[in-house]
């Protein structure tokens, strides 16, 4: 078990290094003087010179990378060109806003979709199955930003049940904050349910045709015992991995939802920074999100043996 954990941790290391290299390299690909890019158009020559030595631009690329990594490890992601804010605290505060939406949405979607998918598989080719799969495929095909607009139009503008624009943090005003989160979370839940129902159904189908399921029935077990005790745990593994991937992908792709609902999250920060050519912030966002994605997948991997003890043995 310890070996398994260590192995997975070791396997994540090169990925983390290469992700950092990619983020570092990406910004260096932009034509122009990196120091000038990092300081923006208003920079004074002496500032640029100072930045030159800070980034070590007179040194070789590997050395520059090491300097940059050293700063990152110490929590120094640079300062925003636009308002001179330190990047890391900015990214973290915005990340928390996005994360609460994404995590709650994925949790809710899984709780609804996974049982639905299992039942669809159990009743394969029945009316229930067709209805569930059909619905899932349609949900999956609706782009989130459009769905968000439609929900906004209906619940916000036509029915006026929920606030339309803006955001109040849950910390400062609990009920008010929650009201602002209902629509974005609902949008994501509806969309991801489509993905998860299909995934859970497919992996359950794979498992249901295996011998041990027939054997469980041959023992005299009830259908619900066969389905939940024997099939579910084995079928959940692949779905569990997909849940991890969705979590990470949503963190990366949340910008559209935040735009629809004008929520000041990480995605919006990244897009605004691209508009403003605020490279230190872009770099910070990229690095932060991709590293959290690696981390989420690592955790997912480490928990996988709960559903399939075989992976530890490999």
């Amino acid at each position: 078990m310890l070996k398994f954990v260590l192995n997975r941790l070791l396997m994540a290391l090169p990925t983390i290094v290469l992700v950092s290299v990619t983020v570092f390299a990406l910004i260096r690909f932009i034509p122009g003087d990196p120091a000038a890019l990092m300081l923006g158009d208003m920079a004074q020559p002496d500032q640029i010179a100072a930045m030159h030595s800070e980034l070590g631009l007179d040194k070789s690329l590997p050395e520059q990378f090491l300097i940059w990594t050293g700063n990152v490890v110490q929590g120094d992601f640079g300062r925003s060109i636009v308002n001179d804010e330190a990047v890391l605290p900015l990214v973290v505060s915005r990340f928390l806003v996005s994360a609460e939406i994404v995590v709650v949405a994925v949790l809710l979607a899984s709780l609804i979709a996974v049982p639905a998918g299992v039942i669809a598989a159990w009743r394969q080719n029945s009316l229930t199955d067709l209805a569930l799969v059909g619905t899932a495929t349609i949900l999956l095909s609706i782009p989130t930003f459009w769905l968000g607009l439609l929900l906004l139009l209906w619940f916000g503008l036509k029915l006026s049940w929920l606030p339309v624009l803006g955001y109040v943090s849950v910390g400062s005003n609990l009920t008010g904050g929650l009201l602002y989160l209902v629509l974005p979370i609902m949008t994501l839940v509806i969309h991801e349910m489509g993905v998860l129902i299909r995934m859970a159904r497919a992996s359950t189908l794979e498992v249901l045709r295996l011998d041990y399921i027939t054997h469980a029935r041959a023992k005299g077990l009830s259908e619900s015992a066969v389905l939940w005790r024997h099939a579910f745990k084995n079928a959940f593994g692949p779905t569990w991995t997909v849940i991890g991937l969705i979590l990470g992908n949503l963190l990366g792709g949340i910008a559209v939802i935040e735009t629809v609902f004008t929520i000041p999250g990480l995605g919006r920060l990244m897009v605004d920074s691209i508009f403003a050519r605020d490279y230190p912030v872009i770099q910070g966002c990229l690095l932060f999100v991709s590293l959290s994605y690696v981390l989420v997948n690592l955790v997912v991997d480490l928990l996988y043996p709960l559903f399939d003890p075989r992976v530890v043995a490999e």
Binding site: D211, H215, A216, N234, R310
Partner: peptide, 15 residues
């Protein structure tokens, strides 16, 4: 009682 052909797949791997 029933015994199947494939011992590799007749037992539940996660139990």
């Amino acid at each position: 009682g029933v015994v199947f052909q494939e011992p590799m797949t007749s037992l539940n791997p996660s139990m």
